[in-house]
């Protein structure tokens, strides 16, 4: 084979093409296969019933404090920065409320919760499943005749789908409350004006859209993390790699889904 003039071998290009195009498609195929098997295992409620409640506690209730903290601060910061940008005397103060509330409900509530869950829950799921895989516990489950996907993945994904909206509601509640409180204490906008502005521009579809996002985000974070963990390879190092990849991939797909949902539903 003729060498490239710059010393660049054509087989390297093929390697890159494989890495850039084929590998993601390959991964997506495996991911779809895993999901397919998982959906098939959903009716086997008895297999994962006990595990489901445990996962709901881990994914939902244990994440509540950190999600609420982040949401409270993002609401407060949105209020302060909106009032900082409102310099025109022609714009009423109540506009702050009509900016902060839809921001929280449409975007910040879901995305802030999503990022925290990707870091906290995604990494945890990948590490758990990865360790089980490299220590051959998953093989042991299979050897006992249990459906490992039904037993390990289904409860985690269901817990994510169910508990994410709960966390989102908590985030919105605390975020809007925090914004209102900081606006009032900081003298940017009174609570009455804030609520007036929020009501003036409130659309009932906004929280519904937020909920739809939550269901999608909950599914993405848990399923991607399960996928990364379930197919871990290479010992302790592999577990670390899977954990990082789970958190990063969850965040990336979450942002992608955010854009797709906003573009299609709004």
């Amino acid at each position: 084979m003729k060498t490239h003039s710059s010393g660049f071998h054509p087989s390297v290009l093929i390697l890159y093409a494989k890495k850039l195009i084929l590998d993601p498609i390959h991964s997506f195929g495996r991911y779809s296969q895993l999901l397919f098997r998982a959906f098939g295992a959903v009716p086997e409620f008895g297999t994962y019933r006990k595990n489901l409640w445990e996962q709901m506690i881990h994914v939902g209730i244990d994440s509540m404090p950190i999600v609420m903290l982040a949401a409270a601060f993002s609401g407060a910061v949105t209020t302060v920065q909106t009032s900082y940008q409102l310099v025109s005397p022609l714009i009423p103060k109540s506009i702050i409320g009509s900016i902060v509330v839809p921001s929280m409900v449409l975007e910040l509530g879901a995305v802030v919760t999503g990022f925290i869950l990707a870091g906290r829950v995604g990494a945890r799921i990948a590490a758990e499943l990865g360790t089980m895989r490299v220590t051959e516990q998953i093989d042991a489950i299979e050897a006992m005749g249990l459906n490992s996907i039904g037993y390990l993945i289904v409860p985690r994904v269901i817990a994510g789908i169910v508990m994410f909206p709960v966390l989102y509601i908590a985030a919105c509640f605390v975020g809007i409350g925090g914004g209102m409180l900081v606006g009032h204490i900081g003298g940017f906008v009174s609570i009455g004006e804030f609520v007036d502005g929020a009501r003036e521009y409130f659309q009932p579809f906004d929280p519904i859209f937020g909920m739809i996002k939550c269901l999608v985000f909950g599914f993405i974070i848990t399923s991607v993390s399960c996928f990364k963990g379930y197919y871990t390879r290479g010992g302790a190092e592999g577990v670390g790699k899977a954990t990082t990849e789970a958190a990063v991939a969850s965040c990336v797909f979450l942002l992608l889904a955010d854009l797709v949902l906003a573009a299609t539903l709004l």
Binding site: W53, I57, M163, P165, V166, I169, A170, C172
Partner: peptide, 28 residues
């Protein structure tokens, strides 16, 4: 408190807050 109860209570509380919050901002 069993896990089922914890989860159930959390979900119900969230649902109540959601419904009341939406009604509040709809000025109902």
């Amino acid at each position: 408190i069993s896990n089922e109860l914890k989860v159930g209570l959390t979900i119900i509380t969230a649902a109540v807050i959601f419904i009341l919050g939406v009604r509040y901002f709809q000025d109902l």
